[in-house]
């Protein structure tokens, strides 16, 4: 089961995920992602503090989001990577490709110091 909420702060949208992001649930977040990409949201922060499990389908959804925001001149960042998701990210070396922060505030701070996203 996956629950998620979204909150806008400046030019960033924070999506907080709770539960599992996997082959069963990855499809449920797709419409939200499509909406954010269509709206050319420059920065998306995935708050994974309550994410208990991820599988390769969930990773695929995050990688897709990362690539699409980057293609639009923005970025996707991760906050609070813990436990099983951290193991998977580390194994797949996603922690080298995607910026990961200990908190949402730190992720937001990094965006403030980043150049603005291109249109």
């Amino acid at each position: 089961m996956l629950e998620f909420t979204q909150e806008t702060r400046g030019n960033s949208v924070i999506i907080s995920l709770k539960g599992q992001l996997d082959a069963i649930t990855a499809g449920t977040i797709k419409p939200t992602i499509e909406e954010l990409i269509s709206a050319r949201t420059p920065y998306i922060i995935l708050n994974l503090i309550d994410l208990s499990l991820i599988d390769s389908s969930g990773v695929g959804a995050i990688v897709s989001l990362f690539k699409r925001t980057r293609a639009q001149g923005g970025d996707t960042k991760i906050a609070h990577l813990n436990k099983q998701p951290r193991e998977v990210f580390h194994l797949l070396r996603l922690d080298k490709a995607i910026s990961i922060f200990d908190s949402v505030d730190q992720a937001l701070e990094s965006i403030k110091s980043s150049p603005p996203a291109t249109e």
Binding site: V59, G60, V63, L91, L92, A97
Partner: peptide, 12 residues
């Protein structure tokens, strides 16, 4: 490939 969107199951 860290930025692959599929096929990582066997690797895991």
């Amino acid at each position: 490939d860290p930025l692959s969107e599929s096929g990582m199951g066997l690797y895991i």
